[in-house]
């Protein structure tokens, strides 16, 4: 939902980042307002996953230039946990397993950390169980998964559902979903996409990072950005995704070659 007067939640300006001294992001700019759904598409290695990790504060990535304003604040000055508490959410492409830490307890600690930041009272074990059982419905997840260790022994689809469950509990302002569709069968994709649609509102925003059109059949983006070689090459509406689907990424290479000859001003 595009409303030009909606407040800006995330403003990325000429962001540059490298990993192990290898530049990956080479000047990314992107503005996200409340109510919007953005999709960043691109080939493997285009830098789209790096963008999500940098925004969430992964320590392996070094920011080398640019800035990111989040709710008017300098996002890059915040610790990863502070970003999360203030409502930035990253749905991981490969959620890690954490043996020995109960999923239920983990969800409760995370939810309470977010609630404290919003000035809401901490939920005790019972109040939290009520909440989590209600939110489980959003992703049609079996409550038995709460009793296990975080993601331990979960299938790929179960891990992704657990991510969306966390999103449903943490009530994010900006949700970045990194390749949430990868490794999902049609049914799981439908459930996960249904969850994301259910959680999207006029007050929050979603940034989908994806490879394929099929996720965008289920979640309609307001903007589609094509990323290549660490930059956003082109921005358009949902039809841009369809164009990519039709023409493949080859034309991107041509534009990229042109861009390398004369560096493009990125809007």
């Amino acid at each position: 939902m595009i409303r030009p007067d909606a407040p800006v939640l995330l403003e990325i300006d000429d962001l540059r980042a490298s990993v192990e001294d290898q530049p990956i992001l080479k000047g990314v700019s992107l503005t996200i307002r409340a109510g919007e759904i953005h999709a960043v598409m691109g080939r493997n290695g285009s830098g789209k996953s790096t963008l999500s990790k940098v925004l969430a504060g992964h320590p392996a990535y070094a920011v080398t230039g640019g800035r990111v304003r989040y709710r008017g604040e300098d996002l890059l000055a915040l610790e990863p946990e502070e970003r999360a508490r203030t409502g930035l959410f990253l749905g991981f492409q490969y959620p890690v397993e954490i043996p020995g830490v109960s999923n239920l307890e983990f969800l409760r600690v995370a939810t309470n950390a977010r609630r404290a930041c919003k000035g809401e009272e901490e939920l005790d074990t019972f109040a939290f169980e009520d909440l989590v059982h209600e939110r489980l419905k959003v992703v049609q997840m079996d409550p038995a998964f709460l009793e296990r260790s975080v993601n331990e022994g979960f299938s790929g689809g179960e891990k992704k559902r657990n991510e969306i469950l966390q999103m449903a509990l943490l009530d994010p302002l900006v949700a970045i979903l990194d390749e949430t569709d990868s490794g999902l069968d049609i049914d799981a994709l439908r459930i996960v996409a249904g969850g994301v649609n259910h959680l999207a509102s006029a007050d929050n925003a979603t940034l989908l990072i994806t490879h394929y059109q099929r996720l965008l059949d289920a979640i309609t983006p307001d903007y589609v950005h094509v990323m290549a070689s660490g930059r956003i090459l082109r921005t358009g509406g949902k039809e841009l995704a369809l164009e990519l689907e039709e023409r493949g990424y080859d034309w991107v290479d041509a534009e990229l070659a042109a861009a390398d000859r004369a560096p493009v001003e990125v809007a």
Binding site: P59, E79, E81, A84, F89, I98, G100, F106, A110, L170
Partner: peptide, 27 residues
């Protein structure tokens, strides 16, 4: 305890020390 596990917990609003402590206590 891997950097990725810690980052995962941190990215859910759990502080670094609490994240380590959760993993060690669970263990």
């Amino acid at each position: 305890i891997s950097a990725d596990q810690l980052f995962y917990l941190q990215s859910r609003g759990i502080g670094f020390e609490e994240a380590v402590s959760m993993m060690v206590s669970g263990f």
